[in-house]
Amino acid sequence: MKTIRVLLVDDEEDLVATLAERLGLRGIDAEWVTTCEEALKMLPHKQFHLAVLDVKMPRMSGLALKRKMEAVAPGMKFIFMTGHGSERDFEEGSAEAGASYYLLKPVDIESLAEKIREMVYQKEV
């Protein structure tokens, strides 16, 4: 079974750095950046199976970033995280995100790790 490579994008550095470390302890190789621009710069040089994106970020939304990333890395999977906790936000976000997965903050690490494995291995099958 190959190592899963994940890119985390969230403007909260303390959050994204800790999340990456915790995923690492669960066997998932996670890199992180705090801006959409950094994510787009990194993408042509590094390969990731999946990206975990914050929905609301400065200058560019997570959904807009997803569209740009897909253009560079077709077939990449996405998981969204949001601090907006209403049912409506959740439904709208899920619908817009299409086949991707949508998580409400604070995130449960075990659920996130499980979902990442499920989405990456499902893709391979």
Binding site: L15, K56, H84, G85, V107
Partner: peptide
């Protein structure tokens, strides 16, 4: 109010991950 609740969710998320990592390190 919605914006403030979003900010609070962010700080809670950071504390959640930091506390979680402390637990992970304790388990190790």
């Amino acid at each position: 109010s919605a914006s403030i609740s979003h900010e609070l969710k962010n700080t809670l998320s950071i504390m959640n991950e930091s506390a979680g990592l402390l637990e992970d390190l304790a388990l190790l």
